[in-house]
């Protein structure tokens, strides 16, 4: 049974355990987008990076794919890890700003601006749907096609595969298709937290109630916190993250 150290805590795990599993066993939260307990680790989203020192060198490695080995020293929230994650999430927001999960991550990590050009894509190619279809549903009806710029999740010859049973598992596992709350300025790249935008989100919004769960940004700073006073809208306000 390998013994490793995570954030200074010694932990003994069974052989074959990953560092991510070991850290979660200790209750240390590590963000992920492409990980699912029932699937073979993929290592594509890179959010689960941890700083690993193995003798002389200290490198960042994806904890979801890293087998827990004897003597491994792992830091899950070192300054280097935090900076890498924050910059990564900033890019995630730019690529897929409509996703609640990504916006929530950005708020939780304190991402205050998005300097990249927004791309408004709907897929981050985490591969969860592809792997679920293949490994859990035993269908393999969808897969990746193309390379780099042109890579996308698709069906064989762009037709519904005979293998597809329309079970909907691919929809269920998608981490980014849950929309962020549609308060004012829902088109902005970075969810501002309703506090920043002045009046409350759901009541005054186009006379329609927002039925989505509040984004993390709203929750920490918005109308859902009774103890925070709502700021009046100021004239010179510019949206954070937009130039």
């Amino acid at each position: 049974m390998p013994t490793l150290t995570i954030n200074g805590i010694e932990v003994q795990v069974e052989k074959g355990t990953t560092v991510l599993e070991a850290a979660r066993f200790l209750g240390i939260p590590i963000p992920t987008l492409c990980h699912d307990d029932g699937l073979v680790p993929y290592g594509a989203c890179r959010l689960c990076l941890v700083e690993v020192s193995n003798g002389r060198k200290q490198t960042l490695q994806a904890s979801c794919c890293l087998p827990a080995e004897d003597g491994l020293k792992v830091l899950t929230h070192s300054a280097r890890v935090e900076r890498a994650r924050r910059l990564l999430v900033e890019m995630y927001v730019a690529v897929c700003p409509s996703s609640k999960r990504i916006q929530d991550m950005a708020s939780a990590m304190g991402v205050r601006q998005v300097r990249y050009q927004a791309k408004h894509e709907t897929c981050i190619q985490c591969g969860l749907c592809v792997r679920t279809c293949e490994q859990q549903m035993m269908a393999g009806a969808i897969g990746f096609s193309g390379r780099g710029l042109n890579r996308s999740v698709s069906r064989p010859f762009d037709m519904t595969s005979e293998l597809c049973r329309q079970c909907g598992a691919c929809l269920y596992v998608c981490p980014v298709c849950e929309s962020r709350c549609q308060g004012p300025q829902a088109e902005s790249t970075l969810c501002n937290g309703c506090l920043n935008i002045s009046t409350v989100c759901f009541q005054s919004y186009d006379n329609a109630m927002c039925f989505l769960e509040p984004c993390h940004a709203c929750e920490i700073g918005g109308p859902f916190r009774a103890d925070v006073q709502v700021k009046p809208r100021s004239k010179d306000f510019t949206r954070i993250g937009e130039k």
Binding site: R46, L88, A94, Q125, G148
Partner: peptide, 21 residues
């Protein structure tokens, strides 16, 4: 590199595109 990135991992795929931009 943007064209030759395989596209599997996010930072390489999107990062090279953003940097080129």
């Amino acid at each position: 590199l943007e064209e030759e990135s395989c596209g599997k991992c996010f930072p390489c795929r999107e990062g090279t595109q953003q940097m080129k931009g």
